[in-house]
Amino acid sequence: MSNELGAALADICEEAAALILPLWKSGLTVFSKADESPVTEADRQGEALIVARLTALYPDTPVISEEDASEFGTPDAIGPRFFLVDPVDGTKAFVRGDPNFTVNIGLIEHGRPVAGAVCAPATNETWFTADGKAMKRQAGGAARPVSVRPWPTGAAVALVSHTMGEETVARLTRQYGFDLREPMDSSIKFCRIAEGAADIYPRHGPTMEWDVAAGHAVLEAAGGTVTTPEGETFHYGKALEGFRNGWFVAKGG
């Protein structure tokens, strides 16, 4: 199932992106979820479309999606195969007019991301897994393979959150040995590393499984890794923890 799935997920992501994009910079109302994080009509409409498409195509595979989880909670247990969906990762970026927001679908099998697609609606870029490789296309265009670059000694680029303080940046620089940094929101960080435009994304802060699963799948297919800071395997399906993640580091070559 997972070998052919990436392109199908890319199509769904692009369909959701076409729905979401007209709402960008439209002055739409921003609501607050229970955890005070923002949600907009774009999140809700995008999620409804994605869940409907996945349910129609793969009726036997459960879907864990961000907005549904926020409103109704997550299941106490999950089987070995399920989808993780984030219809707008980087809602804060979306609200302030920044282009770095994404649509995300990842497939998990036995705790590992085996297929995924990430679409950046504002830049018309889509990354997805296909036959063990990572592919990139402009929506409607031909796909080409992408891969991570070797670690560029003296010029390694880290992608970090806009809100990261200087003290934290300095500590991470010492820990991971990067040279340059670029603030960036959303799962597009995984994709920039996957295509060889950056080298590392250290995340020592809270995330949810749907935030990272699709990007993780793409980055691994491009030759990169996502591990705990100690170098251990990064697992999915943490139902008892509400699908919350621990710290991780995403790296290229």
Rank of each mutant, 00 (worst) to 15 (best):
W247I: 05
E230K: 10
A52C: 01
G253K: 15
G97K: 05
T29G: 01
F243K: 08
H110I: 02
I78N: 04
C13W: 03
G154M: 13
H204T: 14
F243I: 11
L57K: 08
L23W: 00
S187I: 01
G79E: 13
L240Y: 03
V157K: 15
W127M: 11
S186A: 15
I200Y: 03
I188C: 11
T123R: 13
A197Q: 14
A69C: 15
G6C: 08
L57D: 09
R203Q: 10
A120L: 09
V30G: 08
N245Y: 00
P150R: 04
N104T: 06
A16I: 02
R96A: 07
R137V: 00
L49G: 14
M184G: 11
G242I: 12
I50D: 06
S187R: 08
W210C: 13
M164L: 15
R144D: 05
F190V: 08
L21R: 02
T91M: 01
S26F: 00
T123G: 01
G242V: 13
A93N: 14
I20N: 04
T126K: 08
P62V: 10
E166L: 11
V169C: 03
V212L: 14
A194E: 14
V226W: 10
L23Y: 04
N104S: 08
L180E: 13
R112A: 15
S37W: 00
V157D: 06
I200H: 04
R96V: 15
T102P: 12
F128E: 03
A239E: 04
P113F: 11
D131S: 12
L23D: 08
L5S: 07
D211W: 04
T129P: 03
A155Y: 04
V95D: 02
I200M: 00
A18Y: 01
V146M: 05
Y176P: 00
T29E: 12
A221Q: 12
L9A: 09
R53T: 02
A143Y: 03
I193S: 01
N100W: 01
T227D: 12
A117P: 02
I188H: 07
V103F: 07
V114W: 04
E66N: 07
A130Q: 15
D185W: 05
Y58E: 02
W151K: 06
G237Y: 01
E125Q: 14
A158I: 09
G140I: 06
F190P: 11
E36G: 05
T153L: 12
V95I: 15
T61N: 03
A120W: 00
G27Y: 02
L240F: 01
C119F: 02
A213M: 08
A194C: 03
L172I: 11
F234G: 12
K92V: 10
F178M: 11
L107A: 09
K92F: 04
E166R: 06
G46A: 13
V249Y: 06
V160D: 07
K238N: 11
E36A: 15
K133A: 13
E167W: 05
A7W: 02
G231T: 12
D76I: 08
R181T: 03
N245C: 15
A115D: 05
A214S: 11
P183Y: 00
V218F: 05
